[in-house]
Amino acid sequence: MSVLQAWYMDGSTEDPRLPHRLQPDRPVGLQELQELGVWYRRLNAEVYENDPELQRIREEKGYSYMDIVDIHPDKLPNYEDKLKMFYEEHLHLDDEIRYILDGRAYFDVRDKNDQWIRIAMNKGDLITLPAGIYHRFTMDETNYTKAMRLFVGEPVWKAYNRPADHFEVRKQFVNSLKSS
């Protein structure tokens, strides 16, 4: 079973699918991610369809809606355009919940000092990014992931590109960082 890996990113504008580790490397632990409101669990993706642990999490958190997406050049129309859109820095008014069922990808989140942290997502990783956190998504060099998207209630797909500091959910998120 792999362990979640996260690190501070360099400032390179090269292909976003590369790891972009800061040199020297500055790993980020689960505790630091939790202080940003990022919630993480490792599950057995082999049994996701009948996983009692996933069912328990869905019930506890109220994740009533679910769908599955394949992100790959052969499976997602306008793949390169979609990747560019996913990689635009944005926030959502609701939590973003993703469960990687196969493949790999990256989520990048801003820390308290507005620096990028890259979170490497692998098969079995379930993550929740809190409403109001600036983030972005990209694939790694494999160009493949299969992900479950979970929502509380009806899905909301709207992303608000930065700057979006005027939203109340952003103000609440920033205030939560000051108190942690």
Score class of each variant (00 low, 15 high):
46 E>Q: 14
119 I>G: 00
42 R>S: 08
72 H>T: 09
32 E>M: 00
45 A>K: 02
121 M>L: 15
15 D>E: 10
21 R>S: 02
148 M>G: 13
175 N>T: 15
49 E>T: 07
38 V>Y: 06
88 E>C: 07
47 V>Y: 09
4 L>I: 07
25 D>H: 12
1 M>Y: 14
117 I>N: 00
139 M>L: 13
78 N>G: 10
40 Y>D: 10
87 Y>F: 06
173 F>L: 11
131 A>Y: 09
29 G>M: 01
96 E>A: 04
89 E>G: 04
54 L>Y: 03
119 I>F: 08
93 L>P: 06
102 D>G: 04
102 D>Y: 08
72 H>L: 01
82 K>P: 07
144 Y>H: 14
155 P>E: 09
17 R>G: 10
66 M>P: 02
9 M>W: 03
127 I>H: 06
89 E>A: 03
71 I>W: 04
84 K>M: 14
157 W>F: 11
81 D>P: 05
141 E>D: 08
143 N>L: 05
140 D>M: 04
121 M>D: 02
160 Y>T: 15
79 Y>K: 07
26 R>I: 04
171 K>D: 08
137 F>I: 01
115 Q>K: 13
120 A>P: 14
62 G>D: 05
123 K>W: 05
88 E>F: 08
73 P>H: 00
98 R>T: 04
25 D>C: 11
45 A>H: 06
148 M>A: 08
28 V>M: 01
31 Q>E: 09
35 E>I: 00
122 N>T: 15
124 G>C: 12
173 F>D: 01
128 T>P: 11
40 Y>E: 01
52 P>R: 07
8 Y>F: 11
67 D>H: 01
88 E>P: 12
53 E>P: 14
27 P>W: 02
127 I>D: 04
109 V>N: 06
37 G>E: 04
111 D>W: 00
177 L>E: 05
63 Y>A: 03
88 E>K: 09
150 L>D: 03
52 P>T: 04
39 W>M: 11
50 N>G: 13
51 D>Y: 07
103 G>L: 01
167 F>N: 01
153 G>C: 08
59 E>K: 10
115 Q>P: 11
117 I>Q: 03
151 F>C: 09
5 Q>I: 11
146 K>D: 07
31 Q>I: 12
125 D>M: 04
3 V>K: 14
122 N>S: 15
46 E>D: 14
170 R>C: 03
131 A>V: 10
177 L>S: 13
157 W>H: 09
108 D>C: 03
96 E>C: 02
125 D>A: 08
80 E>M: 12
3 V>G: 15
11 G>N: 15
153 G>R: 08
6 A>G: 05
37 G>I: 00
142 T>Q: 12
28 V>L: 07
131 A>C: 15
41 R>M: 01
1 M>F: 15
6 A>I: 00
83 L>N: 11
111 D>L: 13
111 D>F: 00
74 D>S: 08
29 G>Q: 05
130 P>Y: 00
88 E>G: 05
41 R>A: 13
75 K>F: 01
99 Y>T: 11
100 I>G: 06
39 W>F: 10
51 D>P: 02
58 R>Y: 02
39 W>V: 05
50 N>M: 02
91 L>N: 03
11 G>C: 12
66 M>D: 00
60 E>V: 15
